[in-house]
């Protein structure tokens, strides 16, 4: 019998970040926070008011924010920067590349409003390329969390990790179903056990993967759902072990299929165990304005899309074994 995931409340992942930061304010005196005029959106208000000396309002100047964060590490501080994912990555790529990644600075780049679920603001703000940008930087750890609890746990965990981190989360309220404090950087979480297909999902799409697995069960397909919060470094061992068993994989992300989680896993599999794979991801396009739920349907980022991808990959698996 497959384990069912339920929830009693919905919360936004960004509030998990805010809660984690608040806790770090109490436990980690060297943690400082920087924000580029989005305190409310990033839920950094409690940290800012509790520790005004350790909070830096930078203004609408993200490049300067990244540089200041890099400088703060030199005095032994652990800076957490906060702004939207687009302005956390694409806008400041060279600053992150030179002053943070190449300089091995212990900066935590925390990014809200990632992906299509930002909604009505439209494509200028809905970055779907950020995972790719960040994972290409040598030494950068890339984390994309799925719910409030996981985001809170991740926020706390990265403070104790020495090195640059990109932490990606989002705007909408989503089910809270992960236990708190079950988080280890670089270690996947197995949500369900299955034998027919592996579904590796990240961020908001993990819940959709769970919904898909229940629909698949009704169809007699046993899916192993893996919650992969850390996209880099990739938990190669766990993924390879799972596909060894299932022989088929679907990767699921709120991101362009180019440069995302799916591409990382395709690379891993091609080198170690070529396996039929389907991508549930954005098909190399920009987003657009709309209600998040509508957008996720239009761009094929929901449980139905996952079910279809699973059917397809299982067909391919069966064809290959004949």
């Amino acid at each position: 019998m497959k384990k069912k995931y339920t929830y009693t409340e919905k919360k936004d992942t960004r509030s998990g970040f805010g809660a984690g930061l608040t806790e770090l304010g109490k436990t980690h005196p060297n943690v400082v926070a920087l924000c580029a005029d989005l305190i409310g959106s990033l839920k950094m208000g409690e940290f800012a008011s509790s520790h005004p000396d350790r909070f830096f309002q930078i203004g609408i100047a993200e490049a300067n924010m990244i540089g200041i964060a890099a400088g703060l590490t030199i005095g032994g501080k652990i800076p957490f920067t906060g702004t939207f994912a687009n302005f956390s990555t694409g806008r400041v790529y060279d600053q992150i590349r030179q002053s943070v990644a190449y300089s091995s600075k212990n900066v935590k780049i925390c990014a809200s409003h990632a992906g299509l679920t930002l909604g009505e603001d439209g494509a200028t703000h809905q970055i779907l390329e950020d995972i790719g940008l960040m994972k290409m930087l040598p030494g950068m750890t890339v984390i994309n969390t799925c719910d409030y609890n996981q985001t809170k746990s991740a926020t706390i965990a990265i403070a104790d990790y020495d090195g640059p981190v990109y932490l990606r989360f989002g705007r909408p309220v989503v089910p809270v179903y992960m236990p708190e404090n079950e988080f280890e950087i670089g270690k996947v979480i197995h949500l369900t056990e299955g034998k027919d297909v592996t579904i590796v999902a990240t961020g908001h799409m993990v819940w959709e993967a769970l919904q898909a697995s229940e629909k698949l069960e009704e169809l007699g397909i046993s899916a192993e759902v893996i919650n992969i919060h850390t996209i880099k470094p990739l938990d190669a061992e766990s993924i390879l072990k799972s596909v060894n068993k299932t022989g088929a994989i679907v990767t699921v992300e709120e991101h362009n299929y180019l440069g995302g989680l799916g591409e990382s896993i395709a690379g891993l599999l091609s080198l170690n165990n070529p396996t039929p794979q389907e991508f549930v991801a954005v098909n190399d396009s920009f987003g657009e304005s709309g209600v998040p739920e509508q957008l996720m349907v239009k761009y094929n980022l929901n449980d139905e899309a996952i079910v279809e991808a699973v059917k397809k990959v299982i067909r391919r698996k069966n064809e290959e074994t004949i």
Partner: peptide, 19 residues
């Protein structure tokens, strides 16, 4: 800190000064 891509050093210096 690494430098070469121009225009980044003052921000870094400010961060170090804040620290």
């Amino acid at each position: 800190v690494a430098s070469g891509s121009l225009g980044q050093g003052m921000s870094v210096a400010i961060g170090a000064a804040q620290a």
